[in-house]
Design a protein around this nucleic acid. Structure first.
Lengths: 261, 261
DNA sequence: CAGTGGTCTAGACCACTCG
DNA sequence: GAGTGGTCTAGACCACTGT
């Protein structure tokens, strides 16, 4: 199954290393053989060995920690609940079966907040019903856990809606930005959730200190007032290796038909 | 512009190309300059140019269509609704709801079904409460839309539960596997949903015909009976460039506090 | 200062598709 | 058959980290 006959040399070397990782011979955190030593064991040049290792890096299995060497990636995911603020307790005890054990064991959270005025990105413009030339207020947050970036949380508001309000101050809003919106006569009463999966932009990669081979999920929430006016878009960017997204179903009824789950 | 600040040559070439893609100068589907021509315009060797292009490929911005050249990736996402099966909709028995929805859009769906007996992967074993040496029945499906793979849908059942039942036949189950479970006295009444974001395994990449630079979302559903016994795990693997995950919130109530959305 | 990976050059041959 | 990207060799020099 592993080094089946043909294929490029670098793929066969990559297959060999991948198999050793998956078998546990090279456990999480273990150091890979040096490129130099791989050239000898496989009888190829260093360029070929590097190509093989690059395959594993792009698969997210291996990280480079220059100049100490390459290491098997450690993956540790925390639970992310997109619906969190509308749920205090799960409806069924089983829901926590695989989650409670992982949840916060005395971690130290922190965050940074910045406020910018800028033109909205296309997806935000479309959802707020703005033109790309319009201006939005952006509250940009990066959340950290034990000092490493955990996710980003950027809120976009139409400028004329929040002009001069507390939302434009780069500090935590104790009662929540939604409460401020309500005071401005634009209370957000419902929302649409979307999740997009892709590789990070260079910007996102640097904000989140993401290595090669780590994709992100962008969780986008569009908030509406009672009469259907969009007043807010939130974009949460979650590094794939640090999050497990969990959510609950609406109706605890019987599935009706089919295998569509 | 070109020699902005420092950095490796290949990164600057990649930055240049990325900017031209994002500005629209190189639109979706457009052909990139050939590697040969890039060596001339930037005065470097082909290896360096290839390194630059590889960056964009790994970001998912560019695809290679050998030997025609490199092209700006076209991204077209369809909506994926993890909660779909609990919406009430009349359907034809032959088609499950995924297919059903796409048929309405004039697409041509198809699928393959295979049944295997094997040891469960670790995540499935943990959720079904099995040891890794135990055996599960796996119903493996690949769904196609207009001939291209769209996602995979693999269901795992404990062998002793479904032994000899219709679930072990590699054909569509009109009334749904959940109905069969109910007839076996193990009706699934609630479920836990998880989404994991990562790069595909080589297996997944080949099953789904995924190119480099395309991550996947794995949507995992664990189904339980009324008394909390896990009877089924479903793993849906969704290529990131073909899906937009959408879901609904439970209560149309006011958000309670904070910006946690 | 030795060891490691990161970058880059200068070539070569191959496989595949298109006109 | 021409043009393209895919693979591979044989070197070289650099930057950084730990001893």
């Amino acid at each position: 199954m592993t080094s089946r006959g043909a294929g490029p040399l670098y793929q066969r070397i990559a297959d060999n290393l991948r198999a050793r990782i998956q078998s546990g011979e090279l456990a999480a955190g273990a150091k890979l053989p040096t490129e130099e030593s791989l050239t000898k064991t496989h009888g190829v040049t260093r360029a070929t060995v590097r190509q093989a290792v690059q395959v594993l890096v792009n698969e997210g299995l291996v990280v480079s920690e220059r100049p100490r060497g390459h290491f098997v990636r450690r993956i540790e995911r925390l639970i992310y609940r997109p619906q969190k603020e509308w749920r205090e307790r799960p409806t069924h005890p089983e829901l926590d079966q695989f989650m409670d054990e992982q949840v916060e064991l005395g971690r130290k959270p922190s965050q940074t907040i910045a406020v910018e005025l800028a033109a909205p990105p296309p997806d935000v413009a479309a959802r707020l019903g703005l033109a790309e030339g319009d201006t939005v207020v952006i509250r940009k947050r990066v959340r950290y856990l034990d000092g490493t970036p955990f996710n980003t949380n950027d809120s976009y508001f139409p400028l004329e809606l929040v002009q001069g309000s507390e939302i434009m101050h780069p500090a935590d809003i104790g009662r929540g930005a939604n409460q401020v919106l309500a005071e401005l006569g634009a209370e957000q009463t419902h929302a649409v959730d979307e999740i997009e999966v892709r590789m990070p932009t260079p910007d996102e990669a640097s904000r989140l200190e993401i290595g090669l081979g780590v994709p992100v999920a962008m969780h986008r929430v569009t908030g509406y007032t009672d009469n259907g006016r969009p007043v807010r878009v939130v974009r949460n960017v979650l590094p794939g290796d640090r999050h497990l997204i969990a959510f609950e179903r609406t109706r605890p009824a019987k599935p009706q038909k089919g295998d569509e789950q």
